[in-house]
Design a protein around this nucleic acid. Structure first.
Length: 258
DNA sequence: CGTCACTCCTGCTCGC
DNA sequence: TGCGAGCAGGAGTGAC
Protein backbone atom coordinates (compact mmCIF):
# COMPACT_ATOMS: atom_id res chain seq x y z
CA UNK A 1 0.00 0.00 0.00
CA UNK A 2 2.38 2.72 1.05
CA UNK A 3 3.42 5.40 -1.38
CA UNK A 4 4.18 9.00 -0.48
CA UNK A 5 0.62 9.91 0.68
CA UNK A 6 0.35 6.90 2.96
CA UNK A 7 3.71 7.59 4.53
CA UNK A 8 2.67 11.20 5.01
CA UNK A 9 -0.33 9.83 6.91
CA UNK A 10 1.95 7.72 9.10
CA UNK A 11 4.09 10.77 9.71
CA UNK A 12 1.04 12.59 11.02
CA UNK A 13 0.22 9.67 13.31
CA UNK A 14 3.71 9.74 14.77
CA UNK A 15 3.76 13.53 15.06
CA UNK A 16 0.78 13.33 17.43
CA UNK A 17 2.91 11.41 19.89
CA UNK A 18 6.13 13.34 20.08
CA UNK A 19 7.59 14.56 23.34
CA UNK A 20 6.43 11.63 25.44
CA UNK A 21 8.93 9.18 26.94
CA UNK A 22 9.13 5.81 25.24
CA UNK A 23 8.65 3.35 28.07
CA UNK A 24 9.41 0.16 26.15
CA UNK A 25 10.05 -1.16 22.67
CA UNK A 26 8.46 -4.50 21.97
CA UNK A 27 9.79 -6.49 19.05
CA UNK A 28 7.36 -9.26 18.31
CA UNK A 29 8.99 -10.25 15.02
CA UNK A 30 12.64 -9.31 14.52
CA UNK A 31 12.17 -10.13 10.82
CA UNK A 32 11.43 -6.45 10.17
CA UNK A 33 14.63 -5.18 11.80
CA UNK A 34 17.37 -4.20 9.37
CA UNK A 35 20.90 -4.07 10.66
CA UNK A 36 19.96 -3.91 14.32
CA UNK A 37 18.99 -6.38 17.01
CA UNK A 38 15.82 -6.14 19.06
CA UNK A 39 17.90 -5.62 22.16
CA UNK A 40 19.88 -2.72 20.69
CA UNK A 41 16.79 -1.07 19.24
CA UNK A 42 15.03 -1.18 22.58
CA UNK A 43 18.13 -0.07 24.47
CA UNK A 44 18.72 2.88 22.18
CA UNK A 45 15.17 4.22 22.35
CA UNK A 46 13.89 3.44 25.84
CA UNK A 47 13.47 6.65 27.81
CA UNK A 48 13.89 8.78 24.68
CA UNK A 49 11.19 10.93 23.10
CA UNK A 50 10.31 11.20 19.45
CA UNK A 51 10.79 14.66 18.03
CA UNK A 52 9.13 16.17 14.98
CA UNK A 53 9.20 13.43 12.34
CA UNK A 54 9.86 14.09 8.69
CA UNK A 55 9.44 12.21 5.45
CA UNK A 56 11.54 11.80 2.37
CA UNK A 57 9.88 9.83 -0.40
CA UNK A 58 8.57 6.67 1.18
CA UNK A 59 10.83 6.91 4.23
CA UNK A 60 9.59 8.10 7.59
CA UNK A 61 12.38 9.64 9.60
CA UNK A 62 11.90 9.94 13.34
CA UNK A 63 14.65 11.53 15.44
CA UNK A 64 14.56 10.54 19.10
CA UNK A 65 17.35 12.50 20.73
CA UNK A 66 20.62 11.35 19.21
CA UNK A 67 19.37 8.19 17.47
CA UNK A 68 17.13 8.44 14.42
CA UNK A 69 14.52 5.82 13.66
CA UNK A 70 13.99 5.12 9.95
CA UNK A 71 10.88 3.33 8.78
CA UNK A 72 10.13 1.97 5.33
CA UNK A 73 6.77 0.33 4.85
CA UNK A 74 7.33 -1.76 1.74
CA UNK A 75 4.07 -2.79 0.15
CA UNK A 76 2.09 -3.73 3.24
CA UNK A 77 3.42 -1.75 6.17
CA UNK A 78 1.63 0.77 8.38
CA UNK A 79 2.03 2.75 11.57
CA UNK A 80 -0.91 3.18 13.88
CA UNK A 81 -1.79 4.23 17.41
CA UNK A 82 -3.35 1.79 19.87
CA UNK A 83 -4.81 2.10 23.33
CA UNK A 84 -3.18 0.18 26.16
CA UNK A 85 -4.19 -3.45 26.23
CA UNK A 86 -5.46 -3.62 22.67
CA UNK A 87 -4.77 -7.18 21.45
CA UNK A 88 -2.01 -7.71 18.92
CA UNK A 89 -2.90 -8.00 15.30
CA UNK A 90 -1.04 -10.93 13.83
CA UNK A 91 1.02 -8.67 11.58
CA UNK A 92 2.03 -6.26 14.33
CA UNK A 93 5.81 -6.62 14.34
CA UNK A 94 7.09 -3.86 16.64
CA UNK A 95 5.51 -1.51 19.18
CA UNK A 96 6.78 1.61 20.96
CA UNK A 97 5.00 1.87 24.27
CA UNK A 98 4.10 5.12 26.01
CA UNK A 99 2.15 5.77 29.19
CA UNK A 100 -1.09 6.28 27.30
CA UNK A 101 -0.81 3.70 24.52
CA UNK A 102 1.52 2.54 21.82
CA UNK A 103 2.59 3.03 18.22
CA UNK A 104 2.66 -0.15 16.19
CA UNK A 105 4.54 -1.06 13.04
CA UNK A 106 2.31 -3.53 11.24
CA UNK A 107 3.55 -5.28 8.13
CA UNK A 108 2.33 -8.46 6.53
CA UNK A 109 5.08 -9.08 4.02
CA UNK A 110 8.15 -7.63 5.75
CA UNK A 111 9.67 -6.57 2.45
CA UNK A 112 11.31 -3.51 3.97
CA UNK A 113 11.45 -2.58 7.64
CA UNK A 114 13.03 -0.67 10.48
CA UNK A 115 16.50 0.84 10.76
CA UNK A 116 18.18 2.85 13.45
CA UNK A 117 20.81 5.44 12.65
CA UNK A 118 23.12 6.56 15.43
CA UNK A 119 22.70 10.22 14.53
CA UNK A 120 21.48 12.54 11.79
CA UNK A 121 24.63 12.13 9.72
CA UNK A 122 24.13 8.36 9.62
CA UNK A 123 20.48 8.80 8.78
CA UNK A 124 21.41 10.99 5.84
CA UNK A 125 23.71 8.27 4.61
CA UNK A 126 20.82 5.81 4.52
CA UNK A 127 18.83 8.26 2.40
CA UNK A 128 21.73 9.40 0.27
CA UNK A 129 20.74 7.56 -2.89
CA UNK A 130 17.28 9.08 -3.12
CA UNK A 131 16.25 11.77 -5.55
CA UNK A 132 14.35 14.86 -4.39
CA UNK A 133 11.01 14.29 -2.70
CA UNK A 134 8.18 14.30 -5.22
CA UNK A 135 6.28 16.90 -3.21
CA UNK A 136 9.22 19.25 -2.85
CA UNK A 137 10.77 19.11 -6.29
CA UNK A 138 10.53 22.26 -8.39
CA UNK A 139 9.02 22.31 -11.86
CA UNK A 140 12.39 23.09 -13.31
CA UNK A 141 14.26 20.32 -11.51
CA UNK A 142 11.51 17.86 -12.39
CA UNK A 143 11.92 18.71 -16.06
CA UNK A 144 15.68 18.30 -15.87
CA UNK A 145 15.42 14.93 -14.17
CA UNK A 146 13.04 13.59 -16.79
CA UNK A 147 14.94 14.87 -19.79
CA UNK A 148 18.21 13.36 -18.57
CA UNK A 149 16.95 9.85 -18.16
CA UNK A 150 16.87 7.32 -20.91
CA UNK A 151 14.25 4.87 -19.70
CA UNK A 152 10.52 4.82 -20.21
CA UNK A 153 8.44 7.38 -18.40
CA UNK A 154 6.93 4.80 -16.07
CA UNK A 155 10.31 3.44 -14.98
CA UNK A 156 11.71 6.92 -14.45
CA UNK A 157 8.79 8.14 -12.35
CA UNK A 158 9.00 5.15 -10.01
CA UNK A 159 12.79 5.19 -9.74
CA UNK A 160 13.47 6.44 -6.21
CA UNK A 161 16.93 7.57 -7.22
CA UNK A 162 15.35 10.04 -9.64
CA UNK A 163 12.33 11.16 -7.65
CA UNK A 164 11.42 9.84 -4.21
CA UNK A 165 7.86 8.97 -3.26
CA UNK A 166 6.00 7.80 -6.34
CA UNK A 167 5.00 4.15 -6.55
CA UNK A 168 3.22 2.03 -9.09
CA UNK A 169 -0.28 3.44 -8.61
CA UNK A 170 0.69 7.09 -8.38
CA UNK A 171 2.90 6.91 -11.46
CA UNK A 172 0.07 5.47 -13.52
CA UNK A 173 -2.39 7.97 -12.08
CA UNK A 174 -0.15 10.89 -12.96
CA UNK A 175 0.46 9.71 -16.53
CA UNK A 176 -3.26 9.18 -16.98
CA UNK A 177 -4.12 12.66 -15.70
CA UNK A 178 -1.47 14.16 -17.95
CA UNK A 179 -2.72 12.08 -20.91
CA UNK A 180 0.75 10.76 -21.65
CA UNK A 181 1.57 7.16 -22.52
CA UNK A 182 3.73 5.67 -19.71
CA UNK A 183 5.65 3.59 -22.26
CA UNK A 184 7.17 6.63 -23.93
CA UNK A 185 10.83 7.43 -23.41
CA UNK A 186 11.04 10.06 -20.68
CA UNK A 187 13.66 12.02 -22.57
CA UNK A 188 11.38 12.33 -25.60
CA UNK A 189 8.78 14.45 -23.82
CA UNK A 190 8.78 18.10 -24.85
CA UNK A 191 8.72 20.91 -22.34
CA UNK A 192 4.95 21.37 -22.52
CA UNK A 193 4.42 17.69 -21.79
CA UNK A 194 6.83 17.78 -18.87
CA UNK A 195 4.95 20.76 -17.48
CA UNK A 196 1.63 18.98 -17.86
CA UNK A 197 3.08 15.97 -16.09
CA UNK A 198 4.41 18.13 -13.28
CA UNK A 199 1.02 19.77 -12.83
CA UNK A 200 -0.69 16.38 -12.76
CA UNK A 201 1.79 15.17 -10.17
CA UNK A 202 1.17 18.21 -7.95
CA UNK A 203 -2.57 17.75 -8.08
CA UNK A 204 -2.50 13.99 -7.54
CA UNK A 205 -0.15 14.36 -4.59
CA UNK A 206 -2.07 17.21 -3.01
CA UNK A 207 -5.35 15.32 -3.19
CA UNK A 208 -3.98 11.96 -2.10
CA UNK A 209 -1.96 13.42 0.76
CA UNK A 210 -5.14 15.08 2.00
CA UNK A 211 -6.83 11.68 1.94
CA UNK A 212 -3.80 9.92 3.45
CA UNK A 213 -3.70 7.48 0.54
CA UNK A 214 -4.37 7.19 -3.16
CA UNK A 215 -8.13 7.59 -3.24
CA UNK A 216 -9.75 4.72 -5.16
CA UNK A 217 -12.58 6.94 -6.32
CA UNK A 218 -14.43 6.74 -9.58
CA UNK A 219 -12.72 9.75 -11.10
CA UNK A 220 -9.29 8.24 -10.52
CA UNK A 221 -7.63 5.65 -12.64
CA UNK A 222 -6.79 3.86 -9.41
CA UNK A 223 -10.44 3.08 -8.80
CA UNK A 224 -10.67 1.20 -12.09
CA UNK A 225 -7.31 -0.46 -12.52
CA UNK A 226 -7.96 -3.76 -10.77
CA UNK A 227 -10.63 -4.92 -13.20
CA UNK A 228 -9.03 -6.17 -16.44
CA UNK A 229 -10.14 -3.97 -19.35
CA UNK A 230 -12.30 -1.80 -17.14
CA UNK A 231 -13.57 1.35 -18.88
CA UNK A 232 -11.44 4.47 -18.61
CA UNK A 233 -13.15 6.70 -15.97
CA UNK A 234 -12.77 9.63 -18.36
CA UNK A 235 -13.71 8.33 -21.81
CA UNK A 236 -15.00 4.81 -21.33
CA UNK A 237 -12.45 3.14 -23.59
CA UNK A 238 -11.28 -0.21 -22.19
CA UNK A 239 -8.02 0.31 -20.30
CA UNK A 240 -4.81 -1.32 -21.45
CA UNK A 241 -2.44 -3.10 -19.13
CA UNK A 242 1.07 -4.43 -19.47
CA UNK A 243 4.10 -5.06 -17.35
CA UNK A 244 6.72 -2.34 -17.57
CA UNK A 245 9.94 -2.79 -15.64
CA UNK A 246 8.33 -5.64 -13.74
CA UNK A 247 5.29 -3.69 -12.59
CA UNK A 248 1.73 -3.85 -13.86
CA UNK A 249 1.06 -0.63 -15.72
CA UNK A 250 -2.42 0.57 -16.65
CA UNK A 251 -3.29 3.31 -19.13
CA UNK A 252 -6.02 4.44 -21.47
CA UNK A 253 -5.10 3.83 -25.13
CA UNK A 254 -7.39 6.67 -26.24
CA UNK A 255 -6.57 9.38 -23.65
CA UNK A 256 -2.88 8.49 -23.66
CA UNK A 257 -1.88 7.94 -27.27
CA UNK A 258 1.66 6.97 -28.23
C1' DC B 1 23.05 3.46 -18.05
C1' DG B 2 18.72 0.34 -18.98
C1' DT B 3 15.95 -3.79 -18.45
C1' DC B 4 15.23 -8.34 -16.90
C1' DA B 5 15.21 -12.16 -13.62
C1' DC B 6 15.60 -13.40 -9.12
C1' DT B 7 15.22 -12.54 -4.23
C1' DC B 8 13.18 -11.12 0.18
C1' DC B 9 8.05 -12.23 2.57
C1' DT B 10 2.82 -13.47 3.28
C1' DG B 11 -1.78 -13.98 1.78
C1' DC B 12 -5.41 -13.96 -1.49
C1' DT B 13 -7.72 -15.40 -5.81
C1' DC B 14 -8.25 -18.19 -9.69
C1' DG B 15 -8.36 -22.41 -12.31
C1' DC B 16 -8.22 -27.31 -12.41
C1' DT C 1 -11.99 -29.56 -0.83
C1' DG C 2 -7.28 -29.31 -2.12
C1' DC C 3 -3.40 -27.55 -4.51
C1' DG C 4 -0.36 -24.94 -7.34
C1' DA C 5 0.29 -20.70 -10.05
C1' DG C 6 0.25 -16.02 -10.25
C1' DC C 7 -0.12 -11.69 -8.42
C1' DA C 8 0.24 -7.75 -4.96
C1' DG C 9 0.71 0.36 -4.28
C1' DG C 10 8.65 -1.99 -2.79
C1' DA C 11 13.34 -2.44 -3.73
C1' DG C 12 18.29 -4.56 -3.86
C1' DT C 13 21.43 -7.44 -6.61
C1' DG C 14 23.80 -9.37 -10.48
C1' DA C 15 23.66 -10.59 -15.54
C1' DC C 16 23.51 -8.98 -20.07
Amino acid sequence: MPELPDVEGFRRVLSEHTGKPIRAVRVRDPGVLRGISARRLAGALRGHRFERPRRHGKWLIAPAGEPVLLLHFGMTGSLSWHSPGEPWHRHDRVAWRFDDGELRFRDMRKLQGIRLAGDEAQAERVLAGLGPDAREVSRRRFGELLSRRRGRLKSVLTDQAVLAGLGNLLADEICWRARIDPRRAAADLDEAERDTLYGAMRRVLRESVKAGRVPPRGTWLTGARDEPHAPCPRCGTPLSSRRIAGRTTVWCPRCQPR
